[in-house]
Design a protein around this nucleic acid. Structure first.
Lengths: 144, 144
DNA sequence: TTAGATGCAAACGGTTTGCAAACCA
DNA sequence: TGGTTTGCAAACCGTTTGCATCTAA
C-alpha cells in the first residue's frame, strides 16, 4: 500500500523536455535523486552553493511540471517539495515531526471520491489528500 | 451531503476569546459574514480601506484559530481563506473557475481514512482533503 | 487608568524576474 | 555562431512584526 516509488529518471525528463545538458542541472539532479524526504528549495539551494538560487527554483519547477516533484502542504500551511513517481496518481503522508514524506496509493480512495462526486454539484476535476502522521521512526532516532 | 453550513457567529467568537469590541473588528466581521466564496486577505483588506492590513490579518487569524475560517490550498498551490462551520470536521470543494468554496462532510471519507491508517507506518494525526471542481454555476453566469 | 487594539512602515520568507555574461549544440 | 541557460540582484507576493498611538473597559 505504501509504495516503494521507483525514482524517476530526472535526466531523462530534462532530455525529453528538450533541455540542454548543463553542469548546474546535473548537480541538482544528483542531489535530488538521493532525497528520500521532503525538502524545501531553500535548503536544497543551500546544499548547492555552486548553483544559483534561481537555477534551483527554475529546474525544480521543470520537474514539477513533469510530475516528478510534488509540492505538498504541511500541517502548518507551509510547503515542502518531494520527489515522486511520475505517471501514477497518488497521495502523500507527511511526518509532522521530521517531515519525511511517503507516497501512497489506495484505490479505495479514488473509488470513494468517484462516488462522492455524484453528490457534488458540478464536475470534480481533481483532488488532493494529505495525511499528517507521526512516523515513529524519527523521534526515537533510529533513522528512517 | 453538501452542507448548508450555518454561518458561525463571529462576534460571539471574538467575545468568547476575550477580545474587545472595536470598530475595525466589526467592519471585518460584517464583511466576512457576507462572503460565500473563498477570498484572499489581500482582497479582503482592499475592501476595507479604513482598516489597516495588519488588523485584517490579525483578526482573521483569530478566526482561523477558532476554526471559523479555514485556509485552503488551491489547485495551483496558492491559498484562499473561507468561512466555515465551526466544531465539525469537514472538507472543501473549490471551484477552479470562480473560487467558490463549498463545505462537505462525508462520513465514508473519515471511515476510509481510519482504515487506511492501519496500513500506514506510524500514527495518522490528521488529514486534508480538497476537491477541485468546476462548479458549473459560475461561467454561465447564472449567479451562485 | 491601563491593558489591549490599531495603523503604519519596515522586515520577513519564499519565490520570480530582468538582464548581461557564460555556455551548449 | 545563436539560442539557452546561468548567476546575480532586485523585485515580488503574502504575511508578520515593532512600535508609538489610541481606545474600550
Amino acid at each position: 500500500m505504501v509504495s516503494d516509488a521507483p525514482p524517476p529518471d530526472l535526466l531523462a525528463i530534462l532530455e525529453r523536455a528538450g533541455c540542454r545538458d548543463t553542469a548546474p542541472r546535473r548537480a541538482i539532479v544528483s542531489l535530488l535523486e538521493q532525497k528520500q524526504e521532503g525538502f524545501t528549495l531553500e535548503a536544497l539551494s543551500d546544499e548547492l552553493p555552486s548553483v544559483g538560487r534561481a537555477t534551483v527554483y527554475r529546474t525544480v519547477k521543470l520537474f514539477q511540471e513533469a510530475g516528478a516533484v510534488c509540492k505538498l502542504a504541511t500541517i502548518n500551511g507551509s510547503h515542502i517539495y518531494s520527489l515522486c513517481g511520475v505517471g501514477h496518481h497518488h497521495h502523500h503522508t507527511v511526518c509532522v515531526e521530521c517531515g519525511a514524506v511517503e507516497e501512497f496509493r489506495v484505490d479505495a480512495v479514488e473509488r470513494l471520491i468517484g462516488e462522492i462526486s455524484a453528490d457534488i454539484p458540478g464536475e470534480v476535476i481533481s483532488h488532493r489528500l494529505e495525511l499528517y502522521v507521526n512516523c515513529h521512526s524519527c523521534p526515537a532516532s533510529k533513522g528512517k
